[in-house]
């Protein structure tokens, strides 16, 4: 592996750099020593078994949970990243119309007081893009699961963010809706936006996502989807994610970062100034528990 000096290299707009990143709960890492850059314009799938740290990584990127170690370099500004959680904290019993829900995506433009009326056309266009034209005045509580997910995608559209993070966006969604939403995602990709989606359906990943990060708390493989999603890698991911230890010792890899192969679709090559040798072998005898991964 090549080593080179990196200082505080500014991240290009739309890219996310993960530097020696460890995320977790109660000091137990759920994502362990992750290094690499998600380049601007990437369409990347985040794959791994349950508890692999996919949701944790996405929450870390938006700043919802703090890094235990290492850091995430991402472009600033509240409009930079749009995020669709797996099971949001959305109160669907709240008497709010679909149009108002979508209008929330305009928060950065509208703020506390500015009128949303001039934006109405944008909002309606977003609703029509997700196939919900005519649903403007319906209460959100009356939508079906698929319709609601479509409405949330409309909100993502009006957020107009450079980076879009999706946490299992198609869980519990029927094939027709999934196909429509994937078409939207491909449209965003065509506009040069960076998209990271946590997914379980490997056929979907192979069909639509050029790059994949296979995660099992440790990065197992990262690069072209074809080369990442091999039987061997998937088996390793499964084995890694099943190992856990309630009384894990303190991690001794504090100075040395564990590397994943850098993404191969034009991603920044990563290296750092520590002169230490390490590989992917798990030569340390402790394992980690995480149990809180949503």
């Amino acid at each position: 592996m090549t080593h080179a000096l990196i200082g505080d290299v500014p991240v290009q707009p739309g890219a996310i750099a993960l530097r020696g990143l460890t995320l977790g709960y109660d000091r137990h890492p759920a994502v362990h020593h992750l290094d690499g850059t998600i380049p601007a314009g990437a369409l990347m799938a985040l794959v791994g078994p349950n508890g692999a740290g996919k949701s944790t990584l996405l929450k870390g990127i938006i700043g919802e949970i703090r890094c235990l170690d290492g850091r995430i370099d991402r472009p600033g500004g509240a409009d930079a990243i749009a995020y669709l959680p797996q099971a949001g904290e959305i109160d669907r019993g709240f008497p709010l119309s679909v149009l108002d829900l979508v209008a929330m995506g305009r928060w950065r433009r509208l703020g506390f007081w500015r009128s949303a009326l001039p934006d109405r056309r944008t909002l309606v266009r977003a609703l029509s893009a997700v196939g919900l034209l005519g649903f403007e005045d319906r209460m959100i509580g009356t939508l079906s699961g698929g319709q609601f997910q479509r409405a949330l995608f409309a909100r993502l559209i009006v957020q107009d963010a450079r980076i879009i993070l999706l946490d299992e966006p198609f869980t519990g969604i029927d094939g027709r809706t999934t196909a429509d939403l994937i078409a939207l995602i491909r449209g965003w990709h065509g506009e040069g936006r960076t998209i990271v989606a946590a997914l379980h359906d490997l056929h979907q990943v192979k069909a639509h996502f050029p790059t994949t990060l296979l995660l099992a708390r440790e990065p197992v493989a990262w690069g072209d989807t074809e080369t990442v999603l091999t039987q061997e890698n998937l088996a390793r991911a499964q084995a890694l994610s099943e190992a856990w230890d309630e009384d894990a010792a303190i991690c001794g890899r504090g100075d040395g970062h564990h590397h994943a192969p850098p993404p191969s679709d034009g991603g920044d090559r990563h290296a750092h100034d520590h002169d230490h040798s390490h590989g992917h072998a798990h030569d340390h005898d402790h394992r980690h528990d995480h149990g809180h991964v949503a």
């Binding site: 938006i62 929330m104 950065r108 506390f112 007081w113 909100r155």
Partner: peptide, 21 residues
């Protein structure tokens, strides 16, 4: 009147409000 919009957002989708503001 001043807090109406963020207050509604905080009620409906607090996680979303946290990500944008």
């Amino acid at each position: 009147a001043a807090l109406y919009r963020p207050l509604v957002m905080e009620c409906v989708d607090p996680l979303f409000l946290r990500t944008v503001s």
